[in-house]
Write a protein that binds this DNA or RNA. Structure first.
Lengths: 127, 127
DNA sequence: TCTTACCTTTACGTCAACGTAAGGTACGGT
DNA sequence: ACCGTACCTTACGTTGACGTAAAGGTAAGA
């Protein structure tokens, strides 16, 4: 029972993306798969990172920013100053996400309102 | 007291964007300002639309999709079939937004968890 | 009258995030 | 011996969303 690994093709189909995209992310330093000869072998760590990347993309973040964030998860630094810096960084990231959630909730509310109006119109047609 | 209007420069500074961006959106048919000679005059409608566009962008949507959505707000169709079609469309849009919110909440939870760990590490350094 | 501050159009440039083709390697099956 | 499949690299192409210069019009104020 040794730890599971994945090929690039498996990851691509698992997360519904493309080989090209995964290779591109490696090129950008976001993924660092092991190699057997030339073939990539992905371990759990890179699988998780890929998941984080794709989620970040769905949320509309650029790869640079995503890279910054997922690297925060890597190395909790050992030095106090660095730790405080990291914590401050986390704060601003969270603020960004909270702003985004406000946007999202507003958009949802407006959609609901629109649907209500549509249903009213639809009901009005029956009279 | 006639209804308020805005110049392109006012809108740009109000929403912290650029003239170029606003003109680009007009080019794409997302905005349709009135003209006085060659100069654009924006009314409340386009101001709202610009707000919606920029919010959509912050949420990571492409302009095509944004165009589709804000046009839904325009013309509640008068025909029953069309109305039902629109309602169905609203459903799928909402589903997308809800997925996005799940992503967002997960990301927030992980950030919180990371911060907790950092604070623990920081406290551990004091011993 | 001249400057400043707006606005305009046209058009080429740019950057991120891949897509896509060309050509090669390696392995399992028939 | 050959085929199909999955992997690889290199490198040019594409698309969306603007940026940025060039060249100019208009109206208010010194």
């Amino acid at each position: 029972m040794r730890p599971p690994t994945w090929t690039i093709g498996e990851l691509a189909s698992d997360f519904d993306t493309t080989l090209r995209t995964i290779r591109f992310y490696e090129d950008k330093g976001l993924l660092t798969p092991e190699r057997q000869g030339t073939t990539r072998i992905f371990h759990a760590r890179d699988r998780v990172r890929l998941q984080l990347i794709l989620r970040g993309k769905r949320l509309g973040f650029a790869l640079d920013e995503i890279a910054h964030v997922i690297n925060m998860y890597d190395n909790p630094p050992g030095e106090a100053g660095q730790l405080e810096f990291l914590i401050a960084d986390i704060q601003t990231r969270r603020d960004h996400l909270l702003e985004k959630r406000r946007d999202l909730d507003e958009a949802l509310a407006e959609l609901d309102e629109l649907e209500r109006r549509c249903r009213d119109d639809l009901a009005g047609l029956g009279l």
